[in-house]
Design a protein around this nucleic acid. Structure first.
Lengths: 337, 337
DNA sequence: ATATTTTGTGCAACCGTTTTCGCATTTGAA
DNA sequence: TTCAAATGCGAAAACGGTTGCACAAAATAT
């Protein structure tokens, strides 16, 4: 390993404490000394020992990421890798390291977080997949450990989080469909209990209202989950009654199920939109019109929020502002709408 | 933060040194004492402070991952996320943390590795994307820092690496094509300078030879890179002369280019195979027959190799065996072949 | 000219763990 | 019974930074 703080001190003709203060840009050190020490640092190729630094009281400049371990989801949806990249880009710029781990289940995740915290290896956590009633969130709050959530927090006032503006996103989708000339527009969502479903549903309703179109309950269906099967079921329900000329779904998987149902039943000419811009939707024919949730930027913003949180004094954290970010989505028109 | 080693010592009625020895299962501590201390540890929810531990001489149980930052590649090919998952699964089982970073370029990567090493935060490195004449490899060797490579090492004897058996993989592809009744089989590869191209080309040759088929030079083309464009160019070259009835490519992107060329020129009935089992190949119609390189397992094996390396004494590392693993590939037949 | 504040730096204790050395105590051999 | 070796554990010095405190020198106020 390279030079340590003593080597630098000796080289610059000062004491180790002075070097340390130069590293942290302490105002009590004169410019002349700072310059001399900094030269010594580059001269010797000095990199501070992170272990010693965090042991001695500084917060370790490392963030811990908690990822779900759902093999299918991981490769169908480039969300996670892109979010991780976004986080990496930002964290790098601020000089933070990143720890990650895929966990099998909630129990596993809590275990990880416990290890992150107690090992002293990590100063903050980013949760990349928020569940409803997430025990990880509870655990982190209970431990009073800094974290941010990607996704809408159950308690948005006392939690830091980043998310898309799901209302706005769906509003935009429906408006787009209306402008395309569609009049009877259905809605196929995930479980009602999810915040994201609610938000998007509200966006759907408002977009219709805004243009003076009525909400027709028969054209609305909420699945039990986000699977293709639920999509097919939704197709059966919605297309069984009145025929809409477009259906906005809240997830590409649902859309795939819906398209499958339509194909199997020879139904054509209905516009379909999805959410998440998954790879399958991009490459299938016809390409699925979908909403890109901008995972990259979600990641960057999450990292930004967390690092800002970490770098504000403990006493002021309560009223950190902002405690959340909304990230723009982008509608990607393709053949299905 | 939780309890420290002194708390545990007090609780168990021993000295901190004894607790430390129990943690590392030192043979000089009696079973009775070990039990008592271990009880104290669970009782107090003790997790060793990783910073202190690594400061005091232990190697930090953390591995650093170096990833390329090629946005397109990252989401078209689920290789990286799967490899990362594989690494995570194995590292977790052995009690290691994982650091990752996406780098813009080679310069950036070296910078990261330097930080990894000098910060004392990391005890070994996994390179997920090996280039030819990789400066990172040189740097790591020069620093005498433990690392493994995913991909074939330039110097396979003195480097630790994991890779697919590319010879075998292509042998299998060609054999499959021959068994399907194809007789004139072409080869469309990436740059010749790449080891992987060579290996797969040799597999192609041997598979033909093995069954007594001649190698026809006009049916072989090596592109300048792994892009769709090169695939189209290859199609033009190979399909311009004698018509083969199948073409084995060394990369899905090349295969996509080839298929595109065929479509644009109205050429049909030629079997095509790819490599990497990318998402586009899975979802396009017709589905692309491709070789799954088993990224998950590559990741696991890489982690295994590195951790084993780290846990053998410095003096014995020279003749660590094995210093590499071959990971099975899996041919995934779809419509194009 | 003296008193007071500000500025610049060093000393030394501390963070939590590891590990060498050393000292009892027990075990086994002579 | 005596001595050497093995066993079981504690004391204390690292590891590399950080930071409160002290203190001298310089700047400013009186």
């Amino acid at each position: 390993m390279g030079a340590n703080i003593k080597d630098v001190a000796k080289f610059a003709g000062v004491s180790p404490s002075t070097v340390s203060r130069v590293i942290h840009d302490n105002s009590r050190i004169s410019q002349a000394t700072k310059e001399r020490v900094r030269n010594a640092m580059v001269e010797l190729g000095y990199v501070p020992n992170a272990a010693a630094s965090s042991l001695a009281g500084r917060t370790p400049r490392t963030l811990g990421l908690v990822l779900p371990n759902n093999p299918g989801e991981l490769f169908k949806n480039p969300f996670f890798i892109n979010a991780m990249r976004g986080i990496s880009v930002y964290a790098q710029a601020r000089g933070y390291f990143l720890l990650y781990s895929f966990s099998r289940d909630e129990e596993d995740e809590i275990q990880f977080i416990r290890n992150y915290i107690n090992s002293g290896w990590v100063s903050g956590v980013i949760l990349l997949a928020a569940r409803k009633d997430d025990r990880c969130v509870d655990y982190l709050k209970l431990s009073d450990f800094p974290f941010v959530l990607i996704g809408h927090a159950a308690d948005p006032l006392t939690t830091c989080w980043v998310d898309n503006d799901n209302f706005q996103a769906m509003y935009q989708v429906v408006t787009y469909l209306l402008e395309k000339g569609h009049r009877k527009i259905g809605f196929l969502g995930g479980p009602e209990t999810f915040r994201v479903t609610q938000d998007r549903y509200n966006g759907y309703i408002q977009a219709l209202k805004g243009r003076g179109f009525p909400l027709e309950e028969e054209l609305v269906f909420m699945g039990d989950d986000f699977t293709e099967d639920s999509g097919m079921k939704g197709g059966k329900e919605i297309l069984g009654s009145i025929m809409p000329d477009a259906i906005a779904t809240t997830d590409d998987q649902l859309a795939f199920g819906l398209l499958k149902y339509m194909e199997e039943n020879g139904i054509e000419g209905i516009a379909v939109t999805g959410f998440n811009n998954t790879v399958r939707g991009i490459y299938q024919r016809p390409g699925l019109t979908s909403v890109d949730v901008n995972a990259d930027l979600l990641g960057e913003r999450a990292a930004e929020l967390l690092i800002n949180l970490l770098e504000t004094d403990e006493s002021e954290r309560q009223n950190l502002s902002p405690n959340h970010y909304f990230v723009e989505t982008k509608l990607i028109p393709r053949e299905t709408a």
